[in-house]
Design a protein around this nucleic acid. Sequence first.
RNA 1: GCCGGCGUAGCUCAGCAGGUAGAGCAGCUGACUUGUAAUCAGAAGGUCGAGGGUUCAAUUCCUUUCGCCGGCACCA
Length: 634
Amino acid sequence: MINIQLPDGGVKNFDGSVSVLEVAKGISPGLAKAAIFAVVDGVERDLNYVIDHDANLKLLTDKDEAALAVIRHSTAHLLAQAVKQLYPAAQVTIGPVIENGFYYDFSFERPFTLDDLAKIEKKMEALVNLNLPVERKELPRNEAIKYFDQIGEKYKVEIISAIPEDQIISLYTQGDFTDLCRGPHVPSTSKLKAFKLTKLAGAYWRGDSNNEMLQRIYGTAWRSKEELNNYLNMLEEAEKRDHRKLGRQLDLFHLQDEAPGMVFWHAKGWAIWQEVEQYIRKMYVKYGYQEVKTPQIVDRSLWEKSGHWEKFHEDMFSLESDGRHYAIKPMNCPCHVQIFKHGLTSYRDLPIRMAEFGSCHRNEASGALHGLMRVRNFVQDDAHIFCMDEQIQSEVMLFIDMLFEVYHKFDLGADGIAVKLSTRPAKRIGAEEVWDKAEQALTDALNAKGLKWELLPGEGAFYGPKIEFEVKDCIGRSWTTGSIQLDFSMPERLGAEYIASDGSRQVPVMLHRAICGSLERFIAILIEHHMGNFPFWLAPIQFVLLNISEKQAGYTEVVYNKLKNFGFRCKLDLSNEKINYKIRENTLEKIPYLLIIGDKEVEANQVTVRQRDGLDLGAMSVDELINHVANVIQ
RNA sequence: GCCGGCGUAGCUCAGCAGGUAGAGCAGCUGACUUGUAAUCAGAAGGUCGAGGGUUCAAUUCCUUUCGCCGGCACCA
């Protein structure tokens, strides 16, 4: 007798072993039909998993969010099956679930084409219509290796060979196709009814650029056609926020062939930049930073001392002049250490927080460049904190406060920010106890601030652990903006010291930190986050003045000058167009306030205010308008 | 850097099985003097990313190269 406990508290009894599907049928035929997979005693199982003991059972259908991962995984198998049928010479490798979908990597004699993709998708649909049952079987590891060796799947053999010998390997078969997989899977290919192959790409085997490049096919899969369409529409909408697109439409900046990865900032983009920079500068004052400025080009010997030349010279732009070798700085830290070293520093002076809007050049790999997100010349809101060991945690906490104050100011919500702690890598310098202390300090600071964070073991730099703050762009790619990084190496290498309370000379700890990361990247994030509708204080143009006919041109200009003298960024549109046209054009420019002036306004010494979202605030005097925006800014 | 795709007017894009290109919008000129998301008309605008090759003829085919896009790798 087997008792099966259901989530609603009910219990089903069976005389002997029973499959999940049979249990489902016992509950209701509808449930059995809709079921995708099950959780038995906390473990995900297929529907034909046989329960032979008392157990808790939860059935999941396509109504459950959790079904998505299973559907996606099964769709990846479906893709592989289709590829094998169409191109038997292709070798299968891995096909995991990712956010919103899946991919599968194949080794094939030639790259797949878009035509292939269409064919493969058709084949997948045909396989769905065949309603192929998906069946699990288990083999001892060595037999699994033998099996894949026999069918010539050498990548699978390699994968299984890395699994301990005593393990049982599970395989899933649908029709003529068998794949190595942990499962669970949908019971039949007919459950896969909303998928689309989205892109082709190259990808290195095992993620290592020394290895062969495989053909990766990406796809998305959902529980219903409706869900799929919603996703595709969402993607289409999201692409409209792309900062590269908006940068052109709003005339903020451009990039051109002659200066790859370097930005030409137009007046409107630069207005945003100035606001951001000035705001960050205010924060420096508030949080006790000193601002400095250091040279753009520095003799190579400094980079040799700092170790950058050895490790990164391929990414550095260098030049020769009058027989001397120079490098354009790829970072500011060695220069800041030079300022720190000037004169004697007492422990009483610590912490010293030294900030610079430092323009850096890095010769990034051509394939890495991406709009403003990844450029070759960028300005970091960089700062280095020189402090004593015992000050690390409080400095990190202060930095976190500052970071969130800044992000809040720009309307970047904390829930959109991923916090990651990267700890000691295999290759590293510094004593274990120093790493212990440093990692503990970072962990404690994160926890003290009540942040949700993710641990990335082994991802730290060789010279210290770090915390990174990541935000996503319009289509979900993650970019690091803020970071704070401990450095046990550079102060010593470059001979930075302070006089301790006992009169001895000590090497300070150095924290590298940035909030925006680079102003370029940060502004790109702002553009996408606000969809170009910048808050009033950031908007490149804050007011546009529109006269209805030539008659009001004089008065319109007076108001324009008045607002300009108050320091607002204004545009005067006296163009000889209908007011409808002018409203449309300036609304598309995403100017926060459109001030409309006709005879009525001239007479009453007012302006009629229309917001860019179409809301009509009615007529008011200029003073009232200024009051209004002051309230908006707070 | 690697794999694939792309590069035509300021922008968005069409075209060409090889016979030196076309639209809309913007810009320019003119008319209209306008009340809350596109007034009408006219003229103009391009060494089809760059170099080389094949050909009587190349924007179209081949090749090299640069840049961009999507991934991968990288991201101190």
